[in-house]
């Protein structure tokens, strides 16, 4: 594994909002080491989520480069990106993004369908992960029958089902109560200890307790901790 698992070079993402251009990312150069727990802090609109989506291959940059595990994903076509998302990345969202009509276990196993895994093996794998996130007894429940914390644990299990090296989490504790939030954070910490590279966008300051690396973003640019703290104290 290369030392810098994720690297961006002069990364830009510009949205056209009618007449005006919004620079969500404005020339970002960053390196994220392999096996790190990196927290991206920043206020709303700072470009945290945009960065995460670009690294996750869910969107294309306007310009610049994104290298993940030696792959330049900014220029990949949709098929190659789908392959990348399936094998290299596990996503965890603020709003869980589970499919409402599927059982918890089916949600966890869902990515394996697109990977062409047989049903028998899917069941074994998803049960194992449901066990791991402590929801063995909730296998047949629908997402609506689970608490927010439980839903997010299902989402974590789903993110791990293809055993990807990179875990991306976008405000994973944003919709959770304090205790559930802590549980998710320590779960992410566990993943780092297993050797995965964890990249979390958050403005939950508790997340910093688990961080091995921190990135502060403001208006699509990296700033140092001092500048960031000043900006939030003013607001």
């Amino acid at each position: 594994m290369p030392d810098n698992f994720v690297q961006t070079i002069d990364l830009r993402k510009t949205y056209n909002m009618g007449e005006t251009e919004v620079h969500a990312l404005d020339g970002l150069d960053l390196s994220i080491p392999s096996g790190s727990f990196t927290v991206i802090m920043g206020p709303s609109g700072s470009g945290k989520s945009t960065l995460l989506y670009l690294v996750g291959g869910l969107d294309w940059p306007t310009s610049g480069e994104i290298h993940v595990d030696g792959l330049e994903i900014g220029r990949m076509d949709e098929n190659a990106l789908a392959d990348y998302r399936r094998n290299k990345v596990g996503f965890i969202f603020q709003s869980f993004n589970l499919i409402a009509n599927m059982s918890a276990e089916a949600n966890v196993a869902f990515p394996l369908r697109f990977a062409g895994i047989k049903k028998k093996d899917r069941v074994v794998r998803s049960e194992e992960l449901m066990e791991k996130v402590g929801l063995r007894d909730r296998i047949g429940h629908r997402p609506t029958e689970l608490s927010g914390g439980q839903q997010q644990r299902v989402a974590v299990a789903r993110a791990l089902v293809n055993d990807p090296p990179l875990i991306l989490a976008d405000e994973p504790t944003g919709n959770l109560d304090t205790a559930s939030g802590v549980a998710i954070m320590s779960m992410l910490d566990e993943l780092r200890k297993m050797g995965k590279t964890v990249l979390v966008a958050s403005h939950d300051l508790r997340m910093l307790n688990y961080a091995t690396h921190r990135i502060y973003l403001m208006d699509g640019r990296m700033v140092d901790e001092q500048q960031y703290l000043e900006s939030i104290s003013i607001s």
Binding site: L58, E78, N79, A82, R85, R86, F91, N97, I99, F114
Partner: peptide
């Protein structure tokens, strides 16, 4: 639409 987004995020191709 959201479900389509989820499927893509977990590795579904356009063909899928």
């Amino acid at each position: 639409t959201r479900e389509i987004g989820i499927m893509k995020a977990i590795g579904a191709t356009n063909n899928n």
